[in-house]
Write a protein that binds this DNA or RNA. Structure first.
Length: 801
DNA sequence: AGCACGCCGACT
DNA sequence: GTCGGCGTGCTC
């Protein structure tokens, strides 16, 4: 008996284990480990998607097992590495294996389900009879086709066997297949001699086969492009020179010959880095490097030349970048170095396009993959190098299940393939930098800027003084500098740490603040859509012209956003041309690129935006960078707020000035003496690292302690609170002695999307009981989960908020 | 998740 | 007495 172990698409605690199915005889030659299958599951005749994670021969019995219904793929979608990886991922992130598998794969591979009712007996209800006759007796069992009362009526009719339910698993990824031929000749010379001299087409075909002896060739393309007729192919097929097969079809990217860029000459520091990494690629060492390089030190060139090394050894390379910096600038650099064997995975692709790119990778049509977080699961084989650029970026941590960190997955894969990992950043995360200190990672520092670029001159402006003479947004110093910069025909980038026009609406008579009905947070005014929006749940309503509480017209708007800043700036410097860039202006597809292109071609003098503008932008004429409110990040109740602020300020500062023009940075702040601001001013990462490590040590935070965040949420505050305390009690008795438990506390924003949130933080250095205890909590809370409770377990959260 | 089963209140 | 609410167990 052939048995398949299947992970089924039912994300629950109780089903998070492989289920064994019989492989029917007609599928025995077709089925392979890693394929998706349709299996019956549970009572009734329900059908669902599953992944074959193991195949074995069980000679004894298996008669009590159900059989696999059908196979969903021509080729496996998982190899052994990815199966192992999903197992590890599920264990370390406390999530279900099925959730892991589905996040590792393109969205299209997640099946959609349909439930149909079929009329099989006599029914009396005239309305229902009509619906059935109009639809060939088979109708989708949903609200579009039936009213609620009809749906319950149908469930009753099922009991008396008047109707039957049928379940359909919809495979969204049904790739089109095409007929292809594959060479079967081993001795080309003999075949050549045997051909009829007049069979010109057959000679052509033979030449083609000689050239591509090992890959399937699409029949349609041969006929169209090579001038070989179907009869020649037929003849070869009859002589068994070729075999025919159906292969999956995808858009073959146009393989134009582009002139490839040559590697640049390296500085001494760069070439030492490249040398070290390349040595490890050659000797297959799974070692992790931390490349700490100041902005402008040429990290990208180090990446490119090490990728080059991997390719020369016939290995592949994976390069991860934060989504936000997946800009044409970096993509073009990789593409123009390595040509068409590069795949780019970014959020702009449709599901179908992502699936196509994914298959090109799986089918080994590409050697280099560049992409954001989820690209870490790219099905490359034989990986020779993995790079994480801007490794400190928090978007590398996924914020829903499975809550993995890209860095951890990268290191896991590097162990699997025995290849080095390169973490690069100008401002490494404290965790990585500390590991480098301990020798877990090897530190490589790039301290010199290439081309002898000078560091920008940084000025910190104390807003507590400025606010007396000017508004709280633009200091006199900044306005003067902007004017001077524009006058010199250069450009300005301004960073504001908040979006929207005003933060909130306040009634001056009754003190009423307009709040979101679903979340405990005030609504934010947006002028472009003329609405008050909630930034958490997306709720919006019209801007009120009187107080909703006391009907007073005496209402005011407080706070600052990009829209307000734009308006104010336009008044202060009327002749300036301003482009605003934030989540609101970049939502539309391609808008991001359009705005940057416009700014790059001098259609504006000032680029005003949120964090979006801090990364990866490279405009030669930007000589002034202004940070309007450096403090907003510092006020957040999170132990990483200083680190975030330091990173942000360092990153934006790097945007000012290029080789021939010295840049200037102006940082406006109410806390001019804060160490994060002072050290960012000096671009002193190492200084910041030492200072911050001391503080983390004193307060017992990462990297001195590991942490797990438990978030308990419910539609009722009572349930969330009650269950939080029950969990706390359980934790107290089931964790190590040294482990600390903080909370439960309501979240800073206690209610979001109508749910109430409580959280518990667990801090520990080493706790062998932790994993089992957390698993147990998930099991113990099953009955509460049924009643709408949710428990999120986040290992090493990026924020405690 | 989604289905069946089984136990309770409130109806013809 | 039975219809249908929901709490509980189980799915190869």
């Amino acid at each position: 008996m052939k048995i398949a172990d299947v992970i089924v698409d039912v994300p629950t605690m109780q089903t998070d284990t492989p289920f064994s199915y019989l492989v029917p005889t007609d599928l025995q030659t077709v089925i392979k480990k890693g394929m998706r299958v349709v299996v019956p599951f549970g009572n009734g005749n329900r059908k669902i998607e599953g992944f074959v994670v193991d195949l074995n021969d069980n000679l004894t019995d298996g008669t009590d097992l159900k059989a696999i219904d059908s196979v969903m793929d021509f080729e496996p979608v998982l190899n052994q590495e990815l199966i192992d990886l999903s197992n590890w991922l599920a264990r370390t992130t406390y999530s279900f294996q099925i959730s892991c598998l589905l996040t590792m794969l393109p969205n299209l591979l997640k099946a959609k389900y349909e439930k149909e009712v079929e009329l099989v007996g006599q029914i009396e209800d005239p309305e229902l009879t009509k619906i059935f006759t109009e639809n060939n007796n088979k109708v989708l069992f949903d609200n579009e086709h039936f009213s609620n009362s009809q749906l319950s009526e149908l469930l009753r009719l099922k009991k008396s066997a008047k109707v039957q339910f049928k379940y359909q698993v919809k495979n969204e990824a049904r790739a089109k297949t095409e007929l292809a031929i594959k060479n079967e000749i081993s001795d080309f010379e003999t075949v050549k001699k045997g051909l009829n001299k007049s069979a010109k087409a057959q000679f052509k075909l033979l030449n083609l086969l000689t050239k591509y002896p090992n890959e399937p060739l699409i029949q349609r393309e041969i006929i169209k492009n090579q001038g070989i007729s179907i009869s020649a192919i037929k003849a070869f097929s009859e002589k068994k020179y070729i075999s025919k097969q159906q292969i999956e079809k995808y858009r073959n990217p146009y393989k134009h010959q582009i002139k490839l860029d040559q590697p640049k000459v390296l500085t001494k520091e760069q070439s030492i880095a490249v040398q070290k990494i390349n040595d490890d690629i050659k000797s297959k060492q799974s070692k992790t490097y931390l490349v700490e390089g100041v902005t402008g030190s040429g990290k990208t060139e180090v990446y490119l030349q090490t990728i080059q090394q991997a390719l020369e050894l016939n290995q592949t390379a994976l390069m991860l970048v934060p989504e936000i910096s997946l800009t044409p600038q970096i993509v073009n650099r990789v593409k123009s170095r390595f040509g068409s064997r590069v795949a780019i995975l970014h959020s702009g692709l449709s599901n179908g396009e992502k699936y196509d790119e994914w298959r090109r990778i799986r089918d080994q049509e590409v050697d280099v993959v560049v992409g954001a977080r989820s690209a870490i699961f790219a099905p490359l084989k034989n990986i020779g190098l993995i790079i994480l650029d801007e490794e400190h970026d928090t978007s590398y941590k996924q914020d829903d299940n499975p809550r993995y960190h890209t860095r951890d997955v990268a290191i896991w894969r590097s162990n699997y393939y025995h290849c080095p990992v390169v973490l690069g950043s100008a401002t490494p995360s404290l965790e990585s930098r500390a590991r480098a200190e301990k020798g877990v990672y090897e530190l490589i520092r790039l301290t010199q800027r290439v081309n002898q670029q000078t560091l920008p001159q940084v000025q910190v402006v104390d807003m507590t003084q400025e606010i007396k003479n000017h508004g709280d947004l633009f200091s006199g110093t900044l306005i003067d500098s902007i004017k001077a910069t524009i006058a010199a025909n250069n450009q300005v980038v301004l960073l504001l740490n908040r979006r929207g026009f005003s933060s909130f609406m306040l009634c001056r008579d009754c003190g009423y603040v307009l709040m979101c009905p679903n979340c405990d947070i005030s609504l934010t005014m947006h002028l472009d859509s003329h609405t008050m929006k909630c930034h958490y749940c997306g709720f919006e309503e019209a801007i009120p012209n009187q107080c909703p509480n006391c009907k007073s017209k005496n209402i005011r708007y407080f706070g600052t956003g990009t829209e307000k800043a734009e308006k104010e700036l336009q008044q202060l410097i009327p002749e300036s041309r301003i482009i605003r860039m934030d989540v609101d202006t970049t939502r539309k597809k391609g808008a991001h690129e359009r705005i940057l292109n416009a700014f790059g071609s001098h259609q504006a003098d000032i680029l005003l935006g949120t964090q979006i503008i801090a990364k990866g932008l490279d405009f030669p004429d930007v000589t002034l960078v202004g940070v309007l409110n450096a403090d907003t990040g510092l006020e957040l109740p999170d132990f990483r707020s200083s680190e975030r602020t330091f990173d942000l300020l360092t990153q934006v500062s790097g945007r000012a000035g290029r080789a021939d023009k010295t840049g200037k940075v102006i940082i406006q702040t109410f806390n001019p003496d804060h160490y994060a601001i002072q050290l960012a001013k000096k671009q002193d990462y190492e200084g910041f690292f030492r200072k911050e490590m001391k503080l983390r040590h004193l307060a017992g935070y990462s990297p001195y302690y590991y942490s797990v965040k438990l978030t308990i949420s419910s539609l009722t505050e009572q349930q969330a609170a009650q269950e939080s305390f029950r969990i706390l009690e359980y934790l107290k008795g089931n964790l190590g002695e040294q482990t600390m438990i903080l909370g439960p506390t309501p979240r800073p924003i206690a209610r979001i999307k109508k749910r109430y949130y409580y959280q518990i933080i667990i801090k520990f250095k080493k706790d062998p009981r932790l994993a089992a205890t957390l698993r147990k909590i998930q099991q113990l809370s099953q009955t509460e989960v049924r009643k709408g409770l949710r428990i999120a377990i986040d290992s090493e959260p990026v924020s405690f908020m």
